[in-house]
């Protein structure tokens, strides 16, 4: 059996609440009296349980979406997987290597939510900086930076300072730096948050492209429609607990319903189908004119005049 891209077992994270905030917050929303499975010693201080008893297993090559409302523990989970935050209990591994080990990070690229990079660096310098942190140098690094600038479509902006970049461009350069050392796993925290539809589409296309190249992607999002488009599997977190998990099509399929989409169908034809359905014990429950999505409309409209 090969190692899972990400394995999380029995993960619990309790954040201490700074003393001064305990007084100012009268009725904290997500503070439990005595969280389940948390020892009394841990609970003797007021604390926030960000993640509770989480088990996850992400197979190599899949795109996994960690979904949930703001504050449900998605970011904390990702940070623990990346070793940025230490778990209170439980274990996380990346390709079989414990997250607390620095070398586990060789196989992973990370794009934080709303990333800020050093504003005084140009796009290319940013990639070179992060490349050096991953042990790249010389021709190899230059080549890799060129490739990635091409991949994320920032070749023309390579010599511009990041302070002049738009939100979408920052997100793309962030994606490029996450990929600089050719990681097998990509962790993206809200990759499309705050990006306009065109930028968001670009990023989703990139993710699909990466999946095609065999890269495992773990992303968190609260934008469900977008996650639906690209994720193979999703897990839904609520208050730090994984409430639902599975393959996307299985989760959202309505077992006893089938959709037909017809072009140039006359009213007579539809009536005929309806009769046919009734005669075989089926029932037509909806009949409506197909619509495009607002996003599609927006993308078509905006891409006509300008070539983005």
């Amino acid at each position: 059996m090969t190692d899972a891209a990400v394995a999380v077992r029995g993960l619990t994270k309790v954040f201490p609440v700074p003393f001064h905030r305990q007084w100012s917050r009268r009725k904290p929303r997500d503070i439990d009296g005595q969280p389940e499975g948390v020892t009394s010693r841990e609970a003797s201080y007021q604390s926030v349980v960000a993640v509770r008893d989480l088990d996850l297993r992400i197979e190599p090559g899949e795109v996994y979406g960690l979904l949930g409302p703001n504050g449900s523990g998605k970011s904390t989970t990702l940070k623990i997987i990346l070793g940025l935050v230490s778990p209170t209990r439980g274990q996380t591994e990346i390709f079989g290597r414990d997250s607390s080990l620095v070398e586990s990070r060789e196989a992973v690229g990370f794009l934080p939510e709303n990333p800020y990079f050093y504003k005084y660096l140009t796009g290319e310098e940013t990639l070179r900086f992060f490349g050096k942190l991953c042990g790249l140098s010389g021709a190899r690094l230059r080549e890799r930076a060129d490739q990635l600038l091409e991949l994320v479509g920032l070749t023309n902006a390579r010599d511009r300072r990041l302070s002049t970049y738009s939100k979408g461009m920052l997100q793309r350069i962030g994606l490029a730096q996450a990929l600089i050392h050719e990681p097998k796993l990509l962790v993206l925290d809200e990759p499309t948050a705050g990006v306009d539809p065109a930028g968001s589409r670009d990023i989703r296309n990139l993710i699909v492209d990466l999946k095609r190249r065999g890269i495992t992607v773990l992303l968190s999002s609260h934008l469900l429609a977008q996650a639906q488009e690209i994720c193979d599997r999703v897990g839904i977190l609520a208050d730090g607990v994984l409430v639902c998990e599975g393959r996307l099509e299985e989760l959202i399929a309505i077992e006893n319903q089938t959709e037909l989409v017809l072009e140039n169908a006359s009213d007579a034809l539809v009536d005929q189908i309806k009769t046919l359905a009734t005669s075989s014990n089926a029932k037509l429950i909806a009949r409506r004119r197909s619509t495009t999505t607002l996003e599609r409309l927006f993308l078509d409209a905006t891409s006509e005049g300008s070539n983005k």
Binding site: K79, L82, G83, L84, E106, G109, F110, L111, L133, C134
Partner: peptide, 14 residues
């Protein structure tokens, strides 16, 4: 504050 530390420490940097 700028969260640049996340991107740096998410690399294999002790």
């Amino acid at each position: 504050e700028d969260r640049t530390v996340y991107t740096i420490l998410a690399k294999p940097v002790p």
